[in-house]
Design a protein around this nucleic acid. Structure first.
Lengths: 243, 243
DNA sequence: CGCGCACTTGAAGGCGCTCAACATTGGTGG
DNA sequence: CCACCAATGTTGAGCGCCTTCAAGTGCGCG
C-alpha cells in the first residue's frame, strides 16, 4: 500500500535534501488509511497505542480535559502532522486527539517507525525534530494563554495557523479554509465562546480579518502579526515564509 | 574530566537498565562544568548554541518575554534536566533559560551527543524521550494556565515540583527546598505577584502548605493533589511515586 | 420545512489586575 | 555586631476584562 505523504516530505525537505533511498522509504511507508468524520476521537488519553497517526488531510485538535470537565486544546494538527508521534517513546498518551473536520488519517506502526529511525538516522533525527517543534509550539501557547489578552491571543493563533498552512501549501497568500468553530477557538485560547465571538467581531471591525463561512482572509498581514505579537521563529521553518 | 550525572542516569534507569557500556559512556561524558549565580541567563532566545546544558544542581527556569515585556516561565528545570536539549536539532533557541538559584551547570557539545545517539541508540531514544516528557509538561501547563483558577494553578505547580524533585531524590516524603520567589511563581502561573501572595496565604490558611524561608512542607498530600487536580500521569514516571 | 448547531446579543457580577504603600528578611560593609 | 539597603513579601481599595446566564438569530442539511 504505497501512499504519498507530500506534506510530511515537504517539511523534511525544507531542512535537508532527502536521498533517493530515504524518499523511497517514506513514500512506501506501510500505513493504514482511514477517513474519520468530524468531532471523533482518533486516540484517547490513557491509550497505549502501537501506532501513530499521520494527518493526511483535514483538521484535528490535541486536547486535555480538567477534572471539572473543561477542555483545553493544546494544539491544532494539520496535514503532515503526526500529533501523537510522542507515543513512539512514551507508553501512555497524556492527551486525546479529535478530528475537527473530516480527516484522512494514516496509521503507522511504531515498529516500522523505530526500524526506519535505526536504518535511516537522518529520518530519525527529522522525526525527533518534528516532536521538538511541537514542543516549541506548546511553549508559545503557554505564553499566549498566560500573558496575552483575548484579542491578542486570537490574533496570534490565527497567525500561527496561516503560517503553518502556507508551509504545507494549504493557504494561498493570505487566505485559507479554517473549519474551526468559535467554541473550538474558545477551548484553544482559554476563554469562553461568548468572548471569542466578541473578539472576532472587534477584529472584523478593525479590518484584521474577513470571513465567509469557513473561509478567512487577512487583508493586512502586518497588522495581524502586530496585533498578535506574532514572531514565527518558534515554528522553526527554515524557508522564511513570514512575508 | 569524567563527571557523575546521577540524576540523569537515575531517570534513564527508571525506564530500562543501562548496560555497563552505556553507563560508562554517560559517566565519562565530556562536559564543561560551571557554577552560575542566581538570576543569570544561561542561554538566550535567538542563540544558536553548539552545546546543551545539563543542570547538575540548583533551579533554573525556561521563559519567554512578550513584546510588551511580560515574562512567562514555561517550565522549571531541576537537577538531571537538560532544558535546551532541543537545540540538538533546532538551530535557534526559541526560549531563554535563567538560573533561579545558584546552579552547577554542565555544558555538553552537540557533537558528543549526536555521536552517542548514533553509537548507543537506546541512549538516543532515552534522550528523545526526555524531550517528549518536556513537551508533555508544556501541554499540561497550557491546560493549567488556560483552564484553572489561580488557586488550582498554584497547587498544581507545587504538586509537579514535589513529584519531580522526589523522582531525582531531592525531596523527602512531602517536604523540599523551593528557592522560587513569589514573583517567579507569578510569571509561571500567568498571574500577578500580588495575587500569588494572596493565594499562598489562603493555601496556608487551608492547611495545604507550611513554609519557612525556602523550605516547604505538604501536611496533606492528597488534599493538595485534589486542590490542583493533579494527576502525575503526564510526567511519565515509570516507577509510580505518586503516593 | 424544520431541526440542530453555530453564532450573536445583553446585563450583571466576580476573579484577578493596578497602583501604591508598608513590613520583613537577608545579606553586606563599616 | 550592628546599621543599612535592596529584594521579597504583605496589605488595601478601586477597577476592568472576561465570565455566567439566558435568550435570542441565522444557517446548513436531511
Amino acid at each position: 500500500m504505497p501512499l504519498c505523504i507530500p506534506a510530511l516530505i515537504r517539511k523534511m525537505e525544507s531542512v535537508f535534501t532527502l536521498t533517493e533511498d530515504e524518499r523511497q522509504v517514506l513514500e512506501t511507508l506501510p500505513m493504514q488509511v482511514m477517513v474519520i468524520k468530524d468531532d471523533q476521537d482518533i486516540v484517547r488519553m490513557g491509550d497505549r497505542p502501537s501506532r501513530s497517526c499521520l494527518i493526511l488531510s483535514g483538521f484535528a485538535a490535541t486536547y486535555k480535559v480538567t477534572a471539572g470537565g473543561k477542555r483545553q486544546i493544546v494544539s491544532f494538527a494539520i496535514a503532515g502532522d503526526i500529533p501523537d508521534l510522542q507515543s513512539l517513546h512514551l507508553k501512555t498518551l497524556d492527551t486525546s486527539i479529535a478530528t475537527i473536520s473530516t480527516c484522512r488519517v494514516g496509521f503507522i506502526q511504531h515498529e516500522a517507525l523505530r526500524d526506519i529511525c535505526l536504518r535511516y538516522p537522518r529520518i530519525g533525527a527529522a522525526l525527533w525534530r518534528e516532536t521538538l517543534i511541537d514542543a516549541a509550539i506548546f511553549r508559545e501557547w503557554v505564553m499566549n494563554v498566560g500573558q496575552r489578552e483575548a484579542y491578542q491571543r486570537m490574533a496570534h493563533v490565527l497567525c500561527e495557523l496561516l503560517v503553518r498552512l502556507r508551509a504545507v501549501g494549504l493557504a494561498e497568500d493570505h487566505a485559507c479554509d479554517l473549519p474551526i468553530t468559535q467554541a473550538e477557538f474558545a477551548d484553544a485560547l482559554g476563554i469562553t465562546t461568548v468572548h471569542v465571538n466578541r473578539v472576532l467581531q472587534q477584529m472584523r471591525a478593525d479590518g484584521l480579518i474577513v470571513s465567509k463561512g469557513t473561509q478567512i482572509k487577512i487583508p493586512d498581514w502586518d497588522k495581524l502579526k502586530q496585533a498578535g505579537e506574532f514572531d514565527p521563529a518558534y515554528l522553526h521553518l527554515e524557508s522564511d515564509q513570514a512575508a
